[in-house]
Amino acid sequence: MTSLPAHPTGTPHHDHTHDGTGCADVLDLDAQVFGGLLDAAVAVAVEHAPDAVRTVVDLGAGTGTGTRALARAFPRADVVAVDADAAMLDRLRAGLVGTGLADRVRTVEADLDAGWPEVGTADVVWASASLHHVADPARVLRDARDALVPGGLLVVVEMTATSPVLPDDAAHADLAAHLDSAAAQAGWNRYPDWTPFLTDAGLEVVDRREPTAVVPPGPAASRWAHATAARQRAHLADRLGPDGLAALDAVLAATTPTVPTDPTTTHPAAPGRAPGEHTVAARGGRIVWAARRPR
């Protein structure tokens, strides 16, 4: 986690920029590789939710991985998926086809900076990797509290320590340290400890957990590592020293398919991996806060 000035004067980094389809692809790959971390976060919501959950609101639903997980975890609830990006919501709806969940999911296109969306009363509000993007999170948290039923639950999830992992004997195996420093300088995924924000919004913090995972090399980890490293190299190159760039290039070389699947990806020429040969693991983590509206 990249730290911020201490609350109450510190505010999260406000950044809505992304590159559309590329961002969505990486989000979907991240969800595929780190599905266990999503399960762990959803389990926190299930553990602390009210007894009868009728409505779940997913703030910043993105491509809908969390939306689908919440709909499965709360089989008697309707899920309202909120996002400011119409293309993301299109992708979310497409991802519901054939799941049996579409009848219980409603999408709302809304920018949280413009005010609280028309979502009605909620038993659970879920905000995964979205709260740090809003301009005034304190206001959004107060609005979320007001939308919750007495005893209702707000769950906030943020990503931590997400990077490809080269083998220990690789020339540049310390990639994570380089990326953490570069991302901090660039203000990527910047957020505070949400605990005092939640308390100030009139919510009672009932849980805070930090699940982590290292996913071993395999086809999914290779696809995720390649897409992630390509984006990191494109956006963080000016903040990475020679060792950091070399480590990213090593990831790209090790995860390049024998027949490239994305001809627009640019990185130094490399022979690529042989079919069935995967050497790059995936490291990730989450911080999960659960806070209840007092009865």
Rank of each mutant, 00 (worst) to 15 (best):
V56Y: 00
D30Q: 15
R293K: 13
L236I: 00
A253K: 06
L141M: 04
M1N: 09
A40L: 02
A281F: 12
S128F: 07
D146F: 07
A229D: 00
W289E: 09
P217D: 02
A186E: 12
V125R: 05
T261P: 03
R283G: 12
T55E: 02
G202S: 11
L154D: 02
A269D: 03
P5L: 14
H172E: 10
L179D: 09
D207T: 13
P271I: 03
V149N: 00
A110T: 05
F74R: 03
M1E: 13
L179Y: 09
V165G: 11
R139M: 08
G151K: 11
E204D: 15
A176R: 02
W116N: 06
E109Q: 15
V124P: 05
T21A: 15
L198Y: 06
F74Y: 07
L70G: 05
D51A: 15
D28G: 02
D174L: 03
A247L: 02
L175P: 07
D30V: 06
P217N: 01
V33E: 00
P268C: 12
A61P: 06
P294C: 09
G218S: 06
D207N: 15
V125D: 09
L96Y: 10
A147M: 12
H13E: 15
L166E: 08
D143P: 08
P150T: 05
D90A: 14
R54W: 01
E204I: 14
V125G: 12
A250F: 02
L112K: 06
W289M: 10
A171H: 03
G152T: 03
A227E: 06
V259N: 04
L112H: 04
G20E: 04
L96W: 10
T195M: 09
G64H: 06
E118R: 13
L154F: 00
A69N: 03
L175D: 06
A225N: 07
R208Y: 10
A45V: 01
H14W: 07
V157S: 04
G10R: 02
D78L: 04
A110S: 13
A69R: 01
A31E: 06
D168N: 12
A177M: 12
T212F: 13
H235R: 14
A77P: 02
V214C: 15
T121C: 11
G115M: 02
D78Q: 13
T279H: 11
V108F: 13
P8I: 05
A84I: 15
L179F: 11
H18P: 01
A247Y: 03
T162L: 13
A186H: 14
L240F: 12
A184W: 03
A290P: 05
L203N: 05
Y191S: 04
T212W: 07
R233Q: 13
Y191D: 06
T160W: 03
H16C: 10
P192L: 01
R223L: 15
P268K: 08
A87G: 13
Q185A: 10
G36L: 13
V149Y: 04
V251N: 07
T65I: 08
L153A: 11
G64P: 01
L245A: 08
Y191K: 08
P75E: 03
T17E: 15
A227T: 09
A31L: 01
A270I: 02
A250C: 05
G20C: 06
A102H: 12
D238L: 00
L112M: 07
T121V: 15
G218P: 04
D146A: 15
A227S: 11
A220L: 14
G284Y: 04
A43V: 03
F74P: 01
P294V: 08
G244C: 06
